[in-house]
């Protein structure tokens, strides 16, 4: 499927990727996990999914429970250390491992060293495909006008901006129409959306209005949390915009109903 495939040489040279599925993809949207596997395999990777994984620990970390966050980080580090790369279909979880894990162990040099080694080989899915593997296009079809929401962690912690847009440009039948303020938070914020529901609602309400105003028929983003939030709001307001994770479109796996759609 991939036209550019620099790593697809002999099987021995294939990079071994541990897929960190993320808790939201695991529970809500397995299709995204399979899309990730497909994209990675098409790009010449050997993909494995360690069973000893659950959550990266971000909810605990951002709630001030450092002990629980550390316990979850140690679990993930141990499970993923053997791989050449760790890839997650989420900028938020990817950012947690890449930027925050080393800080979790500021007073524990041995674990900090392990966290730093893991950090160096951890990537968000789309930036891994483009920035690390050099993938420049995909062979997929999607008929529609899409708009892309830049999820905060991916954008500001991992600098993911042009990578998904570049790959989307190679999808046949797809055109991209930017919404206004694509870089402004959708109001999800993990536990924020239940701790401050009224504020969160205001933010996602404004986001939904921007999405509808763009005139796109499909909303894409790279993080399930944001996607569930925006899909839930759009649907509550009766908007007809379909919502999908960007990996689904890039992998050509759009035959399943969109997020929150009947089926």
């Amino acid at each position: 499927m991939m036209k550019e495939n620099p790593s697809a040489g002999s099987p021995a040279s294939k990079p071994r990727v541990g897929l960190f599925v993320t808790c939201l993809v695991d529970l809500f949207r397995p299709t995204v996990g399979f899309a990730a596997v497909k994209l990675l395999e098409d790009a010449g990777c050997v993909v494995e999914v360690p069973t000893a994984q659950s959550c990266c620990g971000q909810p605990a970390y951002n709630s001030g429970d450092r002990a629980a966050a550390r316990a979850l980080a140690r679990q993930l580090i141990a499970a993923f250390e053997p791989f050449d790369y760790v890839v997650a279909p989420s900028g938020s979880c990817g950012g947690m491992i890449k930027h925050h894990y080393p800080h979790l162990f500021d007073d524990d040099p041995a674990w900090q060293a392990r966290a730093e080694r893991l950090s160096a080989k951890t990537f968000e899915l789309v930036s891994f495909l483009t920035d690390v593997l050099g993938v420049e296009q995909v062979e997929a079809r999607y008929t529609g006008v899409v708009t892309y929401h830049d999820s905060c962690s991916g954008l500001r912690e991992l600098r993911i901006k042009h990578q998904p847009r570049r790959l989307l440009a190679s999808v046949e039948g797809l055109s991209l129409r930017e919404m206004e303020e694509a870089e402004v938070c959708c109001g999800f914020g993990g536990t924020f959306c239940v701790k401050y529901p009224e504020l969160s609602n205001r933010m996602v309400g404004e986001k939904a209005a921007r999405i509808v105003a763009s005139g796109a028929d499909t909303l894409l983003a790279g993080d399930m949390g944001c996607l569930l939030n925006m899909a839930g709001k759009l649907q509550r307001e009766g908007a007809t915009v379909r919502v999908r994770h960007v990996a689904e479109v890039l992998a050509g796996m759009t035959d399943v109903p969109a997020i929150g759609e009947p089926g």
Binding site: L27, F28, P30, C193, V194, K233
Partner: peptide, 12 residues
Amino acid sequence: GWTAWRDLPTPQ
């Protein structure tokens, strides 16, 4: 806190 203002998409 979620469903007062949004639908909750269900798992696949």
